[in-house]
Design a protein around this nucleic acid. Structure first.
Lengths: 207, 207
DNA sequence: GAAGATGGTGTGGTCTGACCACTAAAAAAC
DNA sequence: GTTTTTTAGTGGTCAGACCACACCATCTTC
């Protein structure tokens, strides 16, 4: 009879409800018991739907308080998928390559978008204290001003971590050289500095 | 007491179980009742974990049969996230920008990786019948030989679709020009052709 | 009056037991 | 040997019962 699983129907209803009431991040949604009554389904079915949305990072539940729409930034979904997806060696190479490509795009965005002042600020930050590689690029990301792109990079960073490669340590000068090129707004020089930082062949036969 | 929610613990256990037994796509996992017993939790908690994984597209349940590990390719997860994430205008711009950047990377990969023969084959395909934009880039993706990157593009493509922009129709000549540049292995010319195809400013102030 | 203690109410978190619908394999009937 | 029937196992759903926790109005104490 009921071919469509109830919990999926509830997910759908919730989406519509959210859209209809124009609920936004941080808003509260009806309680499990109320949803159960309103939709004429068991509370456990409601919970199954909510747990699914929770694991997706779309909602947040707080005991004693309620269920809230979440700010999707930082979905832990990634870790989950990561451990499932990364299996063979080829996939690992793909991760590295993709991360490098994305980071170069990031640099291009920064080149076209960030004003000199911001980059100079980053420069003094690098000089002041030792940032690790992730921290450095995290700083850069914000200058790129593209949230979706940032998300993708964060995902790749996590993937990359889960590869648990030898912890390559890059020296500070490489970063400073990169920053210099950014300040000069010289794309070629910037990418060249990046390749050097990552020890990539300039011939780009392998990014 | 139990700060960690039980269903999350179950998700974790399941992952370990899958890893330990080296279960692969299509394999069956223990029944809900068995998991409930083995992990000393209620069946409803097990179900919450399973429903979450199901919505993620990681498992598949068939009534009367059991629960199976799924092939993640083609996860419907994307549509879900899409409708939730794409809200404000800035996010839309980010999607467009990111998609363009990714596609340019794709072209770079193809430049460095695909042999002329493959590109020529694509050329005759374009000449033979009208491909729409997605189909064209889908063909290109395969030449790039990076599965992770392909996945990212596919997601972006879906996001892009859900923006429901006016259905821009590009003319065939633009594609042919792009292909010519690829055959010549001329990066600058290739990217230039791409920008023209997408009506992007050559000055790259906005990719 | 102000600060702290108390208890009520509503919320999510979990478990249990009971059905139902369905599938596949075993058993029975032919 | 083939077909039909039964049966055991599985996911799907519901209802009810507690628990743990957060919030707030109320009461107590100083």
């Amino acid at each position: 009879m009921t071919n469509t699983k109830v919990y999926l129907e509830i997910v759908k209803q919730l989406r519509e409800m959210i859209a209809a009431d124009n609920l936004k991040s941080g808003d509260k949604i009806p309680s499990e018991r109320e949803l159960s009554e309103r939709l004429n389904v068991g509370r456990s079915s409601v919970r199954e739907a909510l747990r699914a949305l929770e694991l997706l990072g779309l909602i947040e539940t707080r005991r004693g308080e309620g269920t809230f729409i979440r700010d999707f930034r930082g979905n832990q979904l990634v870790q989950l998928l990561g451990t499932f997806i990364l299996q063979d060696e080829k996939a690992k190479l793909d991760v590295i390559e993709t991360k490098n490509l994305i980071e170069m795009d990031l640099l291009r965005l920064v080149l076209n978008r960030a004003d000199e002042q911001q980059v100079v600020k980053l420069k003094s930050l690098v000089k002041a204290k030792q940032l690790n590689d992730d921290q450095f690029f995290y700083e850069l990301i914000e200058l790129a001003d593209n949230y979706l792109f940032s998300r993708i990079w964060l995902i790749l960073k996590d993937y990359h971590h889960s590869l648990s490669l030898q912890n390559e340590e890059y020296n500070r000068d490489s970063y400073l050289m990169l920053i210099e090129a950014l300040i000069e707004k010289d794309e070629e020089k910037t990418l060249s500095a990046y390749r050097q930082l990552r020890n990539l062949s300039i011939l780009t036969d392998k990014y």
